[in-house]
Structures are given as structure tokens and as C-alpha cells.
Simulated scan of single mutants.
Amino acid sequence: MAKQLLKGNIAFAEAAIRAGCEVYFGYPITPQTELLEHMAKRMVELDRVFLQAESEVAAVNMVYGAAAAGAKVMTSSSSPGISLMQEGFSYMAGSNVPAVVIDVMRGGPGLGNIQPSQADYNQVTKSAGHGDFHPIVLAPSTVQEAIDLTVLAFDLAEKYRTLAFVIADGAIGQMMEPAELPEMRPLPEKRPAWAVTGAKGRPHNVISSLYMGAEELEALNLTLQDKLRQIEKAEVRYEATHVDDAEVVIVAFGTAARVAHTSVQHLRAAGLPVGLFRPITLWPFPEQELARLARRIPSVRTFLVVEMNAGQMVHDVREAVGSHVPVRFKGRMGGIIPLPEEIEEEVRRIIPSAHSRAFRVEAKNGRVAHQ
């Protein structure tokens, strides 16, 4: 299909519809409200289920019910709304049911503002609900990736019977870029065998997260940990740019990675050996790939983590690289997007200016080599 100019929020919504989303429950909150509005129009046109719930708490419990019945279901919200949904997410994790969640992040804490932020990182990767579980967390940096990763989220949720989040700061939800939508997938003809049943003439099947016996609940948790290990082994995704010869590697995701990419281009043109490592899966986090990079010869001098928060992903980067390489942090908060110049200034503090004279850019093939 030809590319068309799409707003990020519309891209999320239409991608979900084309991925086979049958049911949507949600509650309006900026900066993701256009997503809900698009679902309200398109789901009705396609004779699918759309319902604007009375609150985020109501919406997530409706998602739980539809997921338990075997429907392909999605919700979306923004930071404080995601906080309200956490109990329901935990119920779904304890019940092994699939669902997709879009989180278009805003500034916080509290109600904060409607400006772009990445301060939900810990909320979705570490504490999406009580108990020992992780959802899959995908982080697009373009409108095209918003489409592609939403489709992927439905596939992964169904494959592993798990929650799959797609998280983006408000800038990605609001920006417009040319992007290509996938073809419409057919809806499933029958419900999966594990789905809740109970009508006459069918086997009785109940889905629950309530286990009163400690040993029974531990057995469930052990099974859940096995599934999480399978996901960690198979579903890590990342993008690495100019890291093979880099002495400073910037680590960033989402809009921060877009800005960092511009900084890397400027710095490489100035003769500085800088690269960019962009996690696409925030969980499972690409820790082994970062660890290998930290042990590479010639070695990376510093990792610079750039985030639109107070430094949340930086802890995962430090855990991955250990004591091999120092990790520094550059962040902005409150809905402020860092400028390329800010990142470049930070990199220049790390790399002595004299180093640039011993470093040349081979313009012919774009490679960088030491002199």
C-alpha cells in the first residue's frame, strides 16, 4: 500500500484495527485522545465493539473480561490512566490472558501536563501491577514503527498469552509522518481452546487469578517465570547505529532516540567516534547486547543514557554493562524534549577536543577510521 500522512495516535488505532482488534475499551485522556476517537468511529463502521467506559478502572476490567473470553482486545491511555489500570493488569497476568495496551506518555507525577515524557518507563517495565510479572514493552520512535509495533504487539500477546504494551511519549502520538498501513487481517473464526466457557453443551472452563493455596500459587508463578524466560530469549529487539568504532555510545528510546540520532550525525561529521544504541523492547531489555558492547575491543569509553525523565532506563543500562564502562545520564523532565545541541555538548565533555584531530571521516563510504 502507498504511504499516507498519519498522526501517531491515528496510526496506533488503525494499525490495531488492521491487526484484528475486535474489542476496544478505554477512557479519554490527552495526549492519546485521538486514538480513542478514531476507534470510536472505525470500530462502529466495522461492526466491532467499542465502549468508552466510565473510568480507566472500569475499562481495564472490561478488557480483562473480553480477554478471558478469547477476544482480541485493546485499551489505551496516558500515564495517570495507566496507573489506575495496574490492578487489572495484574489480574490479567495472573490469568494468562492476552491483551494490548497503548500508553502515550505525558509529564508527571500526578496529573502533570500533556507534554511528552518518558517517565512511565519504570511503571510499565517494573511495576505494571503487583506480583512477579513483566509485560512485553515495545517502544517506537517513528509513526511507521508505531504501526509495525502495534501489529507485533497483537501477535506477541496472542503467542505468549500475555500483556503487550506499546509505549510512546506524547510527541510521537501527536506528530505526523508518512507511513504505510498493513492490509486488513481477517477476524478469527473461533475462540481459542483456553478461553472461558460455561454454556450448556460446552466443557466448563473458568479463568481466574485467585489461588488460595500457597503451593498452588507458587506453581502458577513458576510457570509464569518459565514463560518470561522464553520471551527474554526470543523477543529482544534493538537498533544499533555507528557502534562498531564508537568510543561514546548514546542509549535512548522513542523521541529521545530521534534527537540523539541527529546528535550522532552532527558529531560524526565533526570527527567524533559516537554511536547510538536504541532499545526497541524495553522489556525484555537488550542487556546482553549492551554487555557485549561494553566488553568490545577497542572498548567503548562511556555510555551516555538520554531520557525524558529523571533517569529510569539508566539503571537497566548500568545493570547490563556492570563495572566495565562508566554510564552517564542526560535527561529533561516535565515534558521538555532535549535538544541535539544539549546532547552534543555532553558528548564533547566526555571526549577531549584534541581527540577529534586524530579522527577522520571517510566521506566516500561513510566509515570512520583512526589516523
Rank of each mutant, 00 (worst) to 15 (best):
I147G: 12
L181N: 00
F154N: 00
E158V: 06
M175F: 13
Q174N: 14
A168K: 06
D120H: 07
N221H: 14
A139N: 05
V196F: 07
Q123M: 14
V166W: 09
V206A: 07
L224A: 09
H204R: 14
A219E: 13
H204D: 10
I167H: 09
K159L: 01
A153N: 03
A214E: 15
N122P: 08
T150C: 02
S141K: 12
G170P: 04
E145H: 10
E180I: 03
F133C: 03
T142D: 02
D155I: 07
P192E: 02
G129P: 09
M175E: 08
V151L: 05
N205E: 11
A193W: 10
A157T: 00
T142W: 03
V196R: 15
D132H: 08
D155L: 12
G201F: 13
D120V: 08
E218V: 13
V166Q: 04
H130E: 14
V124G: 10
L220W: 15
L181H: 03
S208M: 01
P192A: 05
G173M: 11
G198R: 04
A146E: 05
V166G: 05
S141Q: 03
I167V: 15
E189D: 14
A193R: 09
F165P: 02
G131N: 10
I172Q: 07
Q174M: 14
R202H: 14
L152R: 13
T223I: 04
A146P: 14
L149Q: 15
A157F: 08
S209N: 15
V137F: 05
R202I: 12
R161P: 00
R191I: 13
Q144R: 08
P178D: 12
V166K: 04
A157H: 06
R191C: 07
A157N: 04
L156I: 00
I167L: 09
P188A: 00
L181W: 02
Q174S: 12
V143Q: 02
E145Q: 15
G213A: 13
E216I: 11
E183Q: 09
K190E: 14
A199P: 06
E180D: 01
T150F: 00
H134I: 00
A119P: 00
